[in-house]
Amino acid sequence: MTDRQATDTVPPPDRTGPDPTASGRTEPGTSPHLELTGICKSFGHVQVLREVDLSVTRGETVCIVGPSGSGKSTLLRCVNMLAAPTSGTVKLNGLVLTDPRTDLNRARARIGMVFQSFNLFPHMSARRNITLPLRRVRHLSRAEAEERASALLDRVGLRQHDAKRPLQLSGGQQQRVAIARALAMQPEVMLFDEATSALDPEMVKEVLAVMRDLAQSGMTMLVVTHEMGFAREAADRVVFMDQGQVAEVGPAEQTLTQPRSERLQQFLSMVL
């Protein structure tokens, strides 16, 4: 039910893999890049996730929508094990993150995460927020780290603000630095946990623009969001979560315009 093909009405794309000469977005591949199986998560007696299955193929953008308390964020945090699932398996490119023998620090370096409250390090400049993990986790030389930070600050349009501390930046700028920080690690997957929810409306756009570019560049993305417009345009698939379960999943446009389940219809009528 989580397979793209199960609900996809358009003919399957070419399965020989992404065409390197094609302009624009990379076509999602077939093999699951990220695979969640039977994820359950309880906090004490409260069961937040019940047997969630979800797989994301390489280059695919999947948006997770749903009412608050439905377990969206918890599911995302299970992907990089910030919250360890009570049961179930998380697989990234064949690496089983839920295996206790897995080096989670190394695994997390391959997964970028962007938080609702940015979580930039307030005691460091924007540039240093980016170079610190490159130096301390990737062990890049100072020159390499600086070079990569410059390239990424350019990419999010903040090169001229690189010496500023997070508190001297607007919310939108802070979030763009946070995205740059995550991208600098050259992750295989990017997770976005309500990346625009804490922003003033006029700043939502600039952050969504960066995310849209990223999706088009072929990054594999799992995005928890309340921005239905973004989900429709930028996502390949939409997952609707309700009460700790995947209640509906399908191609973005179709799922959001012609929801099949009553619960998704209700939810959409309330948020749109």
């Binding site: 964020s73 409250s117 005691h123 508190l167 309500e194």
Partner: peptide, 25 residues
């Protein structure tokens, strides 16, 4: 607070103005 910090253990900027913590934080 405006100056770049050369080492990890130099004086940190005020924490008072931190963005409101979201539900996940």
């Amino acid at each position: 607070s405006a100056r770049p910090v050369p080492t990890e253990l130099t004086a940190p900027a005020p924490v008072v103005g931190l963005p409101a913590a979201g539900p996940g934080s």
